[in-house]
Design a protein around this nucleic acid. Structure first.
Lengths: 346, 346
DNA sequence: GTCGGATATGACATCGTTCCCACATCGGAT
DNA sequence: ATCCGATGTGGGAACGATGTCATATCCGAC
């Protein structure tokens, strides 16, 4: 609490490199060299500096450093919806990997809105982040960030394949796996619940579904492909409609965990038996799927790893800005639980 | 792609305020005034500047600005585990509120480790964030950050009540609510699953449990209070032990969603009926609790709002650094589902 | 015709770092 | 004695923004 020296150190001004220099009786340059390890600093002097720094509780100003060096140690992470366990886990993976590589993570939840996404992107440009990983809602983000010279990695889905790096999962394979599983059990009327087919995820999963049907010698019935909105409420509503209607399917493949939740709730409300009346398989293995009874079969993706891999890719990209862009595809696997069985006998 | 002027603008250097100034034919000062709106700028000039800035795609460097102004527009958010829906939702709430108030969010997952927490805290000091909200693992963070003059808000649990702000929920009330509910149904052997009782959350929930027992005229049996580890696996193991043992309880109150999951799984594995053989109520209403059947009764906290409120509190604190510290307590409510009923007849 | 306020703009120091350069000292070789 | 490389250290100019201050011009009032 005692005020020291002539400068109004007063209550508490953060110590700067200058304060450390004075305390150690050397110049700012020397302190910088001693602390960063770049350039000469005699053993005894280095020790003195380190001691002074520790004593003052000196923490170098990342802003000033970044400004001078023109490279930041922060990466931006843009995800659609942290409340969805998929994105939360992806962010968790990114966080761990970022920490391990010495990056801090600037995160924004873009709420599936293109506007929030642009705003966030601009903030990241202002912060001069070293790179960004994003689950894009449009092609605008990647374009915008790239135009500002910021490396981008698109995760989960891609809008700018070819011009930016991507880390995705085997959507087509996964969808085929899930659908084939149903076909193999003898189902012939298999519905697909999907939110959009413009994004790569939706498109690929739809394709995988169709491929599996074709491979099983089934003709695809467009009436069985339900374009749902992105939320549980809408999915549930549409599932109720479909399951109440005539000629209902004997199995449903839900293209993501949110849609699966809607379908699951609808099934429960209608008092239908799973898998007795209807089989259900989901893309993306959310925690609840292993908690409910019967457990829901699902295509599991290593979401945590998806985030971690994206940060690794970004790190490499930052090191080699001019290298050709790469899309990494992570494998998925089908987790069979109790929600899938033979269709009911006629 | 054409190189312009004498300076090596070359491929792409980010435009600075100087570039805008030259393009608009004015000085840097004028550009600054025109863009920030602080100080004079004639209508025509302002327009010219804005146009030049837009044309160049100029985005002010937040680093330089922060360095000069000595105040940043970033807040730090430190959470224990993004994979836990509780923390994910808290982060989501913080994110939305941060965006609304014009802050960017620097987030770190501290993995329940004190070491990661300190590291992250130091990074936040280096970044000169305007403030930090944290779900603390120890008292060290708040102390450390405060000593560097950074405002802190502790969320969910408090280690530094009195000296820093806090935003928590009515833990004691909630636990009493849950336990009383069981007592009211006629249960006399009610187990408590809890991970630790050093943190305020654990302590208060334990107290609430005890109070409810006392109010119901029951004597607390220490053998019914299970100190579990923090993960599902351990909780499950201990639940198996207890439920297999003699004289098992007729009801369990799990002090958080992770413990509840362990207990739920154990019950399922043992083939016990809920609520026929055993009633279950949880603190913290995780998504799966409304998905499973029977639904799990739970003390619901508005977790999203918890994060949002913390950011609001932080914002106020930043504005008034010297004001007395405040602890905000959010209300909880008991959501009754089907996992709680009268104890089995003897 | 000069004064003074309003209106506008630019020069320049500054924030906390880094790092290029100049410079100092020293021991040993010529 | 002089020169040289090796070993250290400090001075000072950046980085990109802001904001204070000085200054320039104009207009109307005395």
């Amino acid at each position: 609490m005692t005020t020291e020296g002539r400068a109004p150190l007063g209550r508490s001004r953060r110590p700067t490199i200058k304060d450390v220099a004075e305390a150690a009786g050397v110049s700012r340059s020397t302190v910088s060299r001693a602390l960063t390890g770049r350039g000469y600093a005699a053993g005894e002097v280095r020790e003195r500096v380190l001691r002074a720094a520790a004593e003052l509780g000196y923490v170098p100003d990342a802003m000033a450093r970044t400004l001078k060096q023109q490279v930041s140690r922060s990466v931006g992470v843009l995800v659609s919806d942290l409340r969805n366990p998929f994105y939360a886990e992806l962010a968790a993976g990114a966080s761990r990997e970022a920490r391990e590589r010495g990056y801090t993570m600037v995160l924004a939840d873009t709420s599936l809105s293109a506007e929030a996404e642009s705003e966030a992107a601009e903030a990241l440009v202002a912060l001069r982040v070293a790179g960004v990983i994003v689950t894009p809602n449009s092609s605008a983000v990647s374009t915008y960030l790239s135009s500002h010279g910021i490396p981008v990695v698109e995760v989960d889905r891609q809008f700018a394949a070819g011009s930016t790096d991507g880390v995705v999962v085997g959507n087509r394979v996964g969808a085929r796996l899930a659908t084939s599983h149903l076909v193999g059990l003898g189902h012939r009327r298999i519905a697909l619940f999907i939110d959009e087919t413009d994004w790569t995820t939706g498109y690929e999963r739809h394709q995988g579904y169709l491929e599996a049907l074709a491979a099983g010698g089934l003709t695809a019935d467009p009436g069985l492909v339900v374009s749902s909105g992105w939320d549980v409420a809408d999915s549930r509503r549409r599932a109720l409609d479909m399951l109440r209607g005539p000629d209902r399917p004997t199995a449903v493949f839900a293209a993501n965990n949110v849609l699966a939740e809607g379908v699951w709730r609808a099934i429960g409300e209608l008092g239908l038996g799973v898998p007795g009346d209807i089989s259900l398989v989901a893309f993306d293995d959310a925690p609840w799927m292993s908690m409910v009874s019967p457990g829901v079969s699902a295509v599991a993706q290593d979401t945590f790893n998806l985030g971690a891999t994206a940060v690794r890719r970004l790190h490499e990209r930052i090191a080699l800005p001019e290298a050709d862009s790469v899309t990494t595809v992570l494998n998925v696997r089908l987790v069979e639980r109790e929600s899938t069985a033979h269709p009911p006998a006629l």
